[in-house]
Amino acid sequence: MSIAPISFEHHQSAHCENGVISNLFRYNGLPISEPMAFGLGSGLFFTHLPFLKVNGIPGTSYRIWPGLIFKRVSKRLGIEMYSESFRNQQKAKDALDSALDKGIPVGLVTSVFYLPYLPAVFRFHFNAHNIVVYGREGDHYLVSDPVMGAVSTIHKDDLMRARYAKGVPEPNGKMYYPLQIPKNIDFKSAIIKGISKTAYDMTEIPVPIFGTKAIRYLAKKLKNYPADLGDRKATLYLGNLIRMQEEIGTGGAGFRFIYAAFLQEAGKLIEQEWLIEQSIALTKTGDLWRDFAFKAGRICKNRSIDGTSYKELSEILIECSHQEDKIFGTLYKQIKKI
């Protein structure tokens, strides 16, 4: 059986979670941009967890944990969401089909590894990829994957694998969609809450593995990578840093540009010129992050043990941390005053 496709408007985004939020909310009558979703959801972050290793490489993240952006945006805008996970795969399929039959586009959490429409080289086991399914035709579902330029289709068996991927985290067939969007939304209060949280996370958490302190912590470790780890491992660690910063779904410069775009949009919306100034400052820091990735990439490619290069990279990170200290410190203090 096939149902008439819902006329779902697909907009490409830099990052999957923001993109799904933006696309789903727009469909439900609330047009919000990707940067706005990212900012209201306090998506920007930095954490370096040397003890939490994935494939033997320490975890580094430029954003907060998957799923949290969605939760925060909905809460701050007062949007009621349906969200459910399923132990039973058949039930998960039935719930999806029944929502589609009612004409509801559905957000799903999936694993990148099992999405055949994505370019093969990007398919690793990343289990927190968000997509929208907005219809089905025979054995295929119609997919709006926000990081893709256009809509795609996926076979029902592949979608099931993607929804039931194992590892960390496990999607468990999670699906979600907005139930009700309030008529009058207080964007100003949501923007203030969103910025306060990010500014706090970046500068105030008294643990050195979170926020700008973590950037300095990483910088210190990075300086000694060649001596501590040897040539090969040092470049692997470095390569992973670049991937976390730049790969599919980051939007470049470890989300700094998306957040700067948010600050600009927010500053105009609630008429706060100083937010636009901070946006300009963050764009500059984003460029510095790009400089870091560029030089790190060159080191990975040449694979030479060159202590000075790692030292130089470490210094760029320190500079990033100081600039972000200043930006998020200002945001933290100023946002309380409006």
Binding site: G239, E247, A293, R298
Partner: peptide
């Protein structure tokens, strides 16, 4: 701020290749 499509970036390509 505007949106612009990128077909890839050298450091990302290197890291992916690695």
């Amino acid at each position: 701020y505007v949106q612009e499509i990128s077909v890839g970036w050298e450091p990302e390509n290197i890291a992916l290749e690695q």
